[in-house]
Nucleic acid binder design. Structure first.
Lengths: 138, 138
DNA sequence: TATTGACCTTCCAGCAGGCGGAACCCTTAT
DNA sequence: ATAAGGGTTCCGCCTGCTGGAAGGTCAATA
């Protein structure tokens, strides 16, 4: 089947599928006119990739997951490890964003947001000495 | 003052400072030997940028914030608006990550993670036709 | 004076993970 | 014959830097 069909069925843009071929995630054959020819299993694989990417797995993670997926003898521990590492990265990212959010929310709340020029947000950015959110540890 | 000093005092790598000059965030003069010459105010500005970046503001946000910072007649409402928009983006990102985390945590919990090949994580990625497809079809 | 070694300079390449567009080819319908 | 709607490659752009090569400059030392 052609790339357009595969795009529709897998839910990935054709551009992305070409890119995935570029980086070796899929290897479609070519027909006489140069068009990529995909198998049904490629649609499956691409949808798998789409879902893994939607869960935030990196391309390299995906490469590993695909490999494990295609190896029916793999140990589930290997998969779980990749997932747990990713989970941990997500947790770190969430923690980082929550801290950012707290600092920023404090500043936003402190700012009148009216016609006057006085602004605690800029004041804080300009001089961390009087920060409203200093880290006590670290 | 030379770029090395500025890097030390502002806390930004020299590479980053050169990049910031490239994109017009700072405009140091040049001495006879071609070295960049920074004012004390540049150190201040770069530290400002570093803190804004640490709060997750984009470079374009920073450009706006710097401009507002240097305009003593600006209305705090303008600053607050930029900050609130950013806060909203942070909230969206946090929500997205928390949802990802929940899905992934469920899968990780369901996976034995032992020597056996059976893995709910891969099973889910391989055939979850409906849930992650909803945003495109509905 | 020559030579380190630490500075500084520019430019080129690359990271993730693609997106947008140009320029062109293939197929089918009208 | 032509137009629409596939497909192809290639190139550059996005964010926000980071690393490295090749070379100029400066202060200190042997």
């Amino acid at each position: 089947m052609n790339i357009g069909d595969v795009a529709t069925r897998s839910g990935l843009p054709a551009k992305t599928i070409r890119y995935y071929e570029d980086i070796g995630l899929v290897k479609p054959l070519r027909s006489a006119n140069g068009y990529r020819m995909f198998h049904a299993s490629d649609v499956h694989k691409l949808a798998f990739l789409g879902r893994a990417r939607a869960l935030g797995f990196s391309i390299e993670d995906c490469r590993g997951l695909i490999k494990l997926y295609e190896d029916t003898d793999r140990e589930s521990a290997e998969v779980k490890q990749i997932a747990e590492e990713h989970l941990s990265r997500i947790d770190d990212k969430i923690a980082e964003l929550i801290e950012m959010r707290a600092t920023l929310a404090t500043l936003v709340d402190a700012c009148a947001g009216d016609h006057r020029p006085d602004c605690p947000i800029l004041a804080d950015l300009a001089s961390k000495q009087q920060s409203l959110h200093l880290k006590e540890t670290g």
